[in-house]
Design a protein around this nucleic acid. Structure first.
Lengths: 124, 124
DNA sequence: ATACGACTTAAACCTTGGTTTAAGTCAAGA
DNA sequence: TCTTGACTTAAACCAAGGTTTAAGTCGTAT
């Protein structure tokens, strides 16, 4: 199986190496393998798990909640329902946050309209 | 003109008083009036400015950028074009962030589908 | 042989966005 | 009068999410 060094993984995921080390310390990189010299080896599975972590981070899940999710993955099939429930709840949170952003955007667009009109009027 | 105490303003805006004091310290509450005893007096204008600040915060504008916006408001009409440009740029940032969240949500929904299927299969 | 680049660690440091604390002022009601 | 509640301040504190630093270990190309 192909393995990536931390530098390669960082480049593929477009995040700093220091962040990958930080994530490992926080428990987000379970069962990470090492070579004889102690260097981390990222498998394809680790990379795709990190992509999932990226989705969760982009949608503002906290590191401690992501850790709970990872812990459940490690625990195995008995936690599938818990994981499903977590993802469903998170989806609702994200939809609510997107709604709030869209609502707030209306207030911003109103400012844009006002300022645009004021600039137009000033030209008359 | 009607004025609100910090407690009333906090209740109307549904944020802690300490946050209002913090915002003032950061320069987000310009020209705030005081009564003879030194207590803050929030006008209707201040409240509606704070509602705008809320829109900007909900869409993840940083406090220092919000301060720049407020400073331009204080500066007067000569900054309308700068404010318009800021709001237009911010709108684009917000739309990009919403897109990213929607993209990431797809990855989450994929998990939901997988877990749902696995639970269904386990029942066969 | 040695120097370089890529890796390792623990610990210190940083920013953001507040919240909490301690000590004090003031107005109003009992 | 005295206490209670709502306010004031400066400064300390906090959590999250990293980033940076310092010191060290490898493997490899010169």
């Amino acid at each position: 199986m192909k393995y990536y060094s931390i530098g390669e993984a960082a480049a593929r995921l477009n995040i700093p190496e220091s962040t990958l080390r930080f994530y490992e310390k926080k428990g987000l990189l379970p069962i990470i393998e090492r070579d004889e010299a102690g260097r981390r080896l990222f498998s394809e599975d680790q990379i795709s798990l990190l992509v999932t972590v990226g989705c969760l981070k982009n949608t503002h899940m906290s590191i401690s909640e992501i850790k709970q999710y990872i812990d459940w993955i490690i625990e195995g099939d008995s936690t599938i329902e818990l994981r499903l429930e977590m993802m469903n709840n998170h989806k609702q949170d994200v939809l609510a946050e997107i709604s709030l952003m869209n609502e707030s955007l209306k207030g911003i667009e109103e400012k844009i309209t006002r300022y645009t009109n004021r600039i137009q009027e000033a030209l008359l």
